[in-house]
Amino acid sequence: MMEALAMGGYGGYVWSSFGLTLIVVIICVVQVKRRHQQVFSDIKTRLRAMETDQ
């Protein structure tokens, strides 16, 4: 098991590449969700503001 993780001495390089990839994908997913929520709440606020205007 440890041997497989050591990657013949290249473990640091291999695992950091895969780890970074995972982090970037997670950031991308979070950004997409955040942006959607933000747009939604912005529009909601605007709609409410319009209602109170009327």
């Binding site: 997913v29 997409v32 969700k33 747009v39 939604f40 912005d42 529009i43 709609l47």
Partner: peptide, 26 residues
Amino acid sequence: ALLLGRVRSEVLFRERRSRWVKNVVL
């Protein structure tokens, strides 16, 4: 999937004054 997700937000924002967006949000 990420691209579609981003386009959805983008479309919603661009059409924020339209009736359909209002309906979607409500």
